[in-house]
Amino acid sequence: MTKFLTSSLGKKTVMAMTGLFLCIFLLEHLYTNVQLFFGDGGKSFDEASHGMVHSIIIRIIEVVLFFSIIVHVYQAVVLTKNNSDARPVKYAVNGVSKTSSWFSRNMLLTGSIILFFIVVHLYNFFLPYRITGEVVEPEAQGEHLAERVAAALTNPYYAALYLISVLFLAFHLNHGFQSAFQTLGANTKKYVPILKMAGTAFAILMGIGFASFPILFFIFGEEFLNWNL
């Protein structure tokens, strides 16, 4: 097994599996966020969040999630370093743009932006809510997480950062999703077009899905929480 994990294909398998796991997390996160649109002043969202905090299963998954992010990032750095070392002298003229997509070549860039956003995002929401205890019993203190979200997203700087990050997330997914299947060997002639399309569709769905929050809150303000759609 160590042989596998230290081999080039093993490292990539780890990238693919952690990547796909993070995709599942994105789906779950989007589902939770969509509850902000229920027009109930954020009640459903708060409940869902609250439920998650007290669920032992979620707590365990959370550990796996953090582990996945760390491993995914670590392997990305290692692999990129290896790949760069594999060509000590670079080309003076390189036409890779004609033979491969921008998305596939810039995974480190798009990934780094996403990582930066994750850190900020955790600092804003996860840290006070879960770790520092700044917000211990939200209901008791009369603060709703939903309101905190709404407040953040109406901040133009934060909204802009959020939007850019979501855009790069979509870029990252556009290549990453189908690439993971290729790495896991699930791509065959029959499924390549399907998986490529699914990858792009997933990227667009996640992009539009997550982008909808900053856009709507920024346009309509915190009151949007109470809109009955």
Binding site: S8, N82, R87, S101, S104, R105, S179, T183
Partner: peptide
């Protein structure tokens, strides 16, 4: 074959398709 490939110092595939 993969072991030998790794030992030769080639990089890792990132499925760019070039």
């Amino acid at each position: 074959m993969v072991k030998q490939m790794d030992e030769e110092g080639f990089g890792n595939c990132t499925n760019t398709g070039s």
